[in-house]
Design a binder for these strands. Sequence first.
DNA 1: TTCAATCTTAAACACGCATTTAAATTGTCA
DNA 2: TGACAATTTAAATGCGTGTTTAAGATTGAA
Lengths: 215, 215
Amino acid sequence: MVALKSDTSQTRTRQQLLEAAGQVFAEHGYRAATVREICLRAGANVASIHYHFGDKERLYIAVLRYAHERSNEANPDLSRPNDSNSPEEQLKIFVRSFLTQLLERSPLAWDGKLIAREMVEPTSAIDIVIDERMKPLSKRVRDIVRSLLGVNATEDSIRESEFSIVSQCVFYHHCREAILRLYPKFKATGPEIDKLADHITAFSLAGLKAKAQRK
Amino acid sequence: MVALKSDTSQTRTRQQLLEAAGQVFAEHGYRAATVREICLRAGANVASIHYHFGDKERLYIAVLRYAHERSNEANPDLSRPNDSNSPEEQLKIFVRSFLTQLLERSPLAWDGKLIAREMVEPTSAIDIVIDERMKPLSKRVRDIVRSLLGVNATEDSIRESEFSIVSQCVFYHHCREAILRLYPKFKATGPEIDKLADHITAFSLAGLKAKAQRK
DNA sequence: TTCAATCTTAAACACGCATTTAAATTGTCA
DNA sequence: TGACAATTTAAATGCGTGTTTAAGATTGAA
C-alpha cells in the first residue's frame, strides 16, 4: 500500500504504456483510441492500464503531463521567448518548429498532435491542455504578433492575426487526409516542411504589415 | 418489392431522418453520432434507418448527397464563378459565405460542417465528399488565387495560398471549443462573422500580393 | 531459501452501440 | 370493404468497448 518508489526509473511497463498511449491517442484521438491497441503496442496486458493508471481517462491525463515534460526538453523553441532575434525571425522559427511538431512522421513526434486533437475534439482533460499547453503557445504567438503590429494594435486584431497564423499550421495536420486526396502528389515531409514554413511565414508577415498600416 | 414512388414527396419519416442525421453528424461526427439520437430527433424508430437506408453508413452517404443538392440551391456563392466582380471582391464574398456556412448557429446550417468534419475525420464516404464537395470548393479558391497571383504563379504556390485561405476559415469551426476557452469573451456569431471575414480577406490579400511580387 | 509485496496475466463482466427480427399498424387500390 | 403492400414498432441479438476479477508470476529484502 505504501509506495516505495526507491527505484529512480519508472516501471518499464508504465513507461511503455505512456509512449504507446501517446502514439495511439495522437493517431486516433481519445475516443477512437482503444486500450487494447495501446496495450498491444506496449506489449502489456489490458489490465495493466487499470493497475498503473486506474482507467483510460487517467492514463490520458498522465500522457498529457508526460508529453508536457518531454516537449519542454525536446523543443524549447515553441514556448521560450528567443528575444535575440527580430520579430520576423522569431515568427519564422516558431512556424517551422510548430509545423515540424505537427507533421513529423516519427512515432516519437506525437506530442504536438495531441494538442491539435484536443482542439478539434475536446475531452474532459481540456482544461489541462488549455492551461498547460495552449495558453503558452497562444501567448508566444500573441507576443510575436504584438511586436509586429505595433503598440496601437487592438486586442481583437492581435487575436485575429494569432488565429490566422496558427490556423495555417494546424491545417496541415487536421486536414491531412483530405489534402492527400485533393493533391495526391503533395507530401509534407522533410524539406517540404521547410518550404511550407517559408510560405506561411511570408504570407503572414505580409498580412501583418498590411494590418499594421491600416491602423 | 417493386418500388412505386408514385408520390412526388419522399416519405415524411425518410425526410426527417435526413434532416436529423445531418444535424447530428455535423455536431458529433460520423463515429460519435448515434443512430438512437438521430431517430429520437427525427421522431422515428431506430429500425427506420434500416428500412429506409439499410444501415448507418448508407444513411450518411444519403445525407451527403442530400446536403449537396440542398446547398447548391441555398448558397450558390460558394461554387459559382461570380465573374462580374473583381478577384478581390470575389475572395471577400467567398470567405464570408464559407465562414457563414461554418459558423451559423441555425440547426439548418449543418451542411458546411459536414465537409469540415470529413476533412478532419474521413470516413469511407471520403471520396464522395472529395469529388462532389471539396473539389469544387478547392477549384473555386484556386481560380481566385490564380487570378490574384498572376499567370506566372507555380502550381505549388497556388496550392499553398489556397490552403492559407481555407485554413483560416475552417479553423473557427474545427477549433471552436478551444477558442471558446482561450478567449471566453469571443463570440463568432452574426456581425462578428462579417468582421472575421473582413480580417481574413485583408490578411490574405496582402499575403497574396506579396507572393505575387516575390516572383 | 523464504516470504510478502509488487506486478502480470487470462478470463469474464457490464455496457452502449448498430443491427436484425417478427409482429403490429397503416396506407392503397381493386 | 377486403386484401395486399408499405411502413412502423418493440424487442432481441451480436459485437466491440472499458473495466474488473482472481489467480499466477516475479521481485527484492531478511
